[in-house]
């Protein structure tokens, strides 16, 4: 690594002194090294600004090519050692350029940084969260872009197999009406955010054998009122908590908050489930285990 950096600096210095080229052309010079890049599909130095994509890279075998990740990345454990270069709202372009990547994975709303990197001759891979199918095709596209098409194929098949296994296990079970919550104000039932009928959370719920009570609202996120909750009467409340690990007492307290809506079948039958862990809300290769976690909460008897 150090030797490579030294030789890079040396080459840069040589180029500068020999031809007196401007800094701009230097930035445009092949970032990967010395020989011209053989194929655009061989990204060797990858920066990921999206945690879901980082997880995919590691899952398809491109982990060793990842040189920096976003400030929100926590999985897999290997990312702990990698430099952080900001995230969705605050990407640190200077640091990214200094790391001399040949591929930067960005979120779809990061147009300006894509342009900026494009001017520096760095390829970007733009992505937006979608459903499970989009997740599988993103994985395949990443495989092509990083030279791990075979690994991507394997990871996609493994994920598909996990999802199929969950679907099969709960196939014969009656499907409860589920409220899938992914955020609310602590210790109150205000500002509840739930999954509507679009996006990966909704699809995970479908696979896990639950009927989303907001499936008719074709949005990823819905903020329902208490009235709507009462009227739609979910059999089960599934609450996903991405951040932090609440103690048993805190969990019990957060679960008890729902008891004010006493007529909800979910409350009456004690079917309020709080699931914790970032794997539940990151649309990456771990959606398989996340879907299984949902299914286990919805259909515990199917997993005996």
């Amino acid at each position: 690594m150090a030797a490579r950096q030294k030789s890079l600096i040396l080459v840069c210095a040589l180029v500068l002194t020999a031809c007196g080229t401007s800094v701009v052309t230097l930035a445009r010079a092949n970032p990967a090294g010395f020989a011209p890049q053989t194929s655009p599909s061989q990204a060797k130095r990858i920066v990921s600004l999206v945690p879901a994509l980082t997880e995919m890279l590691f899952a398809i075998g491109a982990g060793p090519q990842v040189i920096a990740v976003s400030s929100y990345d926590e999985f897999p454990p290997e990312v702990a050692a990698l430099p952080r270069v900001g995230a969705l709202l605050d990407p640190d372009v200077e640091r990214i350029l200094a790391l001399r990547p040949d591929l930067v994975l960005t979120y779809g709303s990061q147009g300006p940084i894509e342009d900026q990197l494009g001017r520096a001759g760095i390829r970007t891979f733009s992505y937006r969260h979608g459903g499970l199918q989009a997740l599988l095709s993103t994985m395949a596209a990443l495989g092509t872009a990083t030279g791990h098409a075979a690994g991507a194929g394997r990871a996609a098949r493994a994920l598909q197999a996990q999802l199929d296994a969950v679907r099969d296990r709960v196939r014969e079970r009656p499907r409860p009406k589920v409220l899938l919550v992914f955020g609310r104000q602590p210790q109150s039932l205000q500002q509840i955010y739930v999954s509507g009928g679009a996006g990966f959370l909704h699809e995970m719920l479908e696979v896990a054998g639950g009927d989303n009570i907001f499936a008719d609202v074709r949005r990823e996120s819905v903020q329902p009122s208490q009235e709507t909750l009462l009227a739609r009467a979910p059999d089960v409340v599934l609450e996903l908590r991405a951040a932090g690990s609440l103690s048993a007492a805190d969990l019990a307290r957060e679960r008890a908050v729902w008891s004010t809506l006493a007529s909800l079948p979910a409350v009456r039958n004690g079917r309020i489930h709080l699931l914790q862990g970032d794997h539940l809300v990151v649309p990456g290769p771990r959606v398989g285990i996340a879907t299984e976690a949902l299914a286990r909460a919805l259909h515990p008897e199917a997993f005996k």
Binding site: Q226, L230, A231, A233, T260, L261, A262, S263, R268
Partner: peptide, 13 residues
């Protein structure tokens, strides 16, 4: 009250 959805919507929501 616990069984009466209409009452809950009216009095709680």
């Amino acid at each position: 009250f616990a069984d009466n959805v209409d009452a809950q919507i009216f009095f709680l929501a």
